[in-house]
Amino acid sequence: MKYPLTLKVNGETYRLEVKPHRSLLEVLRDELDLTGTNDGCRTGNCGACTVLVDGAPIPSCLMLALDAEGHEITTIEALSAGGELHPLQRAFVQRGAIQCGYCTPGMILSAYALLQENPRPTEAEVRRALVGNLCRCTGYVKIIEAVLAAAEEMASADVGSR
């Protein structure tokens, strides 16, 4: 048996019928083909499936899809929707913060949420914000560098635009 679900993702509204035990992760990937959200552990331990719900990063494997009704969901695909990379994406690319890339979308979304709240974080704040996003490849060094560099770029762009 399926239940009706109205889901708002990346600014679009989808009317779906889903099984009640489907997680938001499964619906994003299987129904909406938003495969940038990765399936890593399904226990909220790894952060590969991070999406933003009303701007807050959560592990989408732990949220029932039906529970997401009424909320604004943002996935990695939204960040470069205009065809241009977000400064965070650019910094991750240019600074070697991406190896296998499986953690990358979640990592970038967690960093994005951090920078929304705190545009000039310290290194310690970056670490605290990303602690739920595991990376097995990079040793995190270049990820921290990339987030700090993107923050700087965004902040100076902000100043410039004023």
Binding site: G36, E77, S80, F92, Q99, C100, P105
Partner: peptide
């Protein structure tokens, strides 16, 4: 030179296709 991997942008944007995809 510090040149990004050719698949870095597809990975940063979620376009890359992993097995699971």
């Amino acid at each position: 030179k510090r040149i990004p991997k050719p698949d870095a942008i597809p990975k940063a944007t979620g376009q890359i296709i992993y097995g699971h995809d």
